[in-house]
Amino acid sequence: MQAFVKTLTGKTITLEVEPSDTIENVKAKIQDKEGIPPDQQRLIFAGKQLEDGRTLSDYNIQKESTLHLVLR
């Protein structure tokens, strides 16, 4: 499924993900596309910070959801 990641600069990245993907996995995909190390990434969805060990389905993130990427 497709999900979108919006950065603070307003850029939107499109990712191909599965509901079973972990947040860690998603961060690795963002690193592949953008070169941002996962340890600098914080992903926010519905106002919550997403934890590495959880999956997209844990957070009820469905296709075409938009996550927000904040860098630390």
Rank of each mutant, 00 (worst) to 15 (best):
M1Q: 04
Q2G: 04
Q2H: 12
A3E: 02
A3G: 02
V5N: 02
V5F: 05
V5C: 03
V5P: 01
K6W: 08
K6Q: 12
K6A: 07
T7G: 06
T7V: 08
T7M: 15
L8S: 15
L8C: 14
L8W: 15
T9V: 07
T9Y: 13
K11M: 10
T12P: 03
T12F: 09
T12Q: 07
I13V: 06
I13N: 01
T14S: 09
L15I: 14
L15R: 00
L15Y: 02
L15W: 00
E16D: 11
E16N: 12
V17F: 05
V17H: 01
E18K: 14
E18T: 15
E18L: 15
P19R: 07
P19A: 10
S20T: 13
S20C: 08
S20W: 14
D21Y: 07
D21V: 03
D21N: 07
T22Q: 04
T22Y: 09
T22M: 07
T22F: 08
T22P: 05
I23F: 02
I23K: 00
E24K: 12
E24I: 10
N25R: 14
N25V: 14
V26W: 00
V26T: 03
V26R: 00
K27S: 01
K27T: 02
K27Q: 02
K27R: 05
K27A: 02
A28R: 15
A28K: 14
A28T: 10
A28H: 13
K29P: 00
K29F: 06
K29R: 06
I30G: 00
I30R: 01
I30W: 00
Q31H: 14
D32T: 11
K33D: 03
K33N: 05
K33Q: 11
E34K: 05
E34N: 10
G35P: 02
G35W: 03
G35Q: 06
I36N: 03
P37L: 07
P37K: 07
P37C: 06
P37G: 05
P38T: 15
P38C: 08
D39N: 12
D39S: 12
Q40H: 11
Q41V: 09
Q41Y: 14
Q41N: 02
R42T: 15
R42L: 15
R42I: 15
R42S: 13
R42M: 15
L43R: 00
L43V: 04
I44T: 10
I44G: 03
I44E: 11
I44A: 06
I44K: 05
A46N: 15
G47M: 04
G47C: 06
G47F: 05
K48W: 08
K48Q: 14
K48V: 14
K48D: 07
K48N: 10
K48A: 10
Q49T: 15
Q49V: 15
Q49W: 15
L50R: 00
L50K: 00
L50P: 01
L50Q: 01
E51M: 11
E51K: 10
E51I: 08
D52R: 04
D52N: 11
D52L: 05
R54D: 05
L56K: 00
L56Y: 02
S57G: 11
S57Y: 10
Y59W: 02
N60K: 10
N60D: 10
N60T: 05
I61Y: 04
Q62S: 12
Q62H: 11
Q62F: 11
E64H: 12
E64S: 09
E64A: 08
S65H: 08
S65P: 07
T66I: 15
L67H: 02
L67W: 03
L67R: 01
L67S: 01
L67K: 01
L67T: 02
H68M: 13
H68F: 13
L69N: 00
L69G: 01
L69T: 01
V70E: 13
V70M: 11
V70A: 09
L71M: 09
L71T: 11
R72P: 13
R72Q: 14
